[in-house]
């Protein structure tokens, strides 16, 4: 799979976080789009296929959990990663049901973005294996 064909979406209301992760991943050759709230994110998902989504838990219009559950209905093939500042975050039962585990959780602050990169690629591969 060509790296360039991997589409990532970042949903985070903090502009700098959104921008920095986007820049970093783009520098690594991925295609990245971003949205500052859940509603916008869902709109993008309706338009385009994304391989992975990095979702902040606290969004202005809905919770990250809520977003993922809605987004999953649009694109069940997307690998969802949860980005949160809460060290005790645990995926809710609904999320567990759609295959989101502690492995999909990234705690803020991300000390090394390479870790995030690896995690995303790993997640996408796993998702593809499951599908294939």
């Amino acid at each position: 799979m060509d790296i360039k064909n991997i589409n990532i979406i970042i949903i985070d209301d903090e502009e700098m976080i959104r921008g920095l992760i986007k820049d970093f991943l783009e520098d690594r050759g991925l295609s990245v789009e971003s949205a500052e709230n859940g509603g916008e994110g869902l709109k993008l998902l309706l338009k385009k296929k994304f391989d992975a989504a990095i979702v902040d838990v606290r969004l202005p219009d809905m919770s990250g959990n809520e977003f993922i559950i809605k987004a999953y209905k649009i694109q069940s093939g997307t690998c969802f990663m949860i980005h949160t500042g809460h060290i005790e975050y645990k995926p809710s039962p609904e999320l567990l049901k759609i295959g989101i585990s502690m492995e999909s959780v990234i705690i803020k602050p991300i000390m090394d973005l390479n870790v995030l990169y690896d995690k995303i690629l790993g997640g996408i591969m796993k998702k593809m294996d499951n599908a294939g």
Partner: peptide
């Protein structure tokens, strides 16, 4: 802690992206 984690993320990631570039 919760509030500080966001700005900290920006600092850490900002430096990393800057160094990367």
């Amino acid at each position: 802690a919760h509030e500080i984690n966001n700005p900290l993320g920006i600092i850490l990631q900002g430096i990393q992206v800057a160094l990367g570039r």
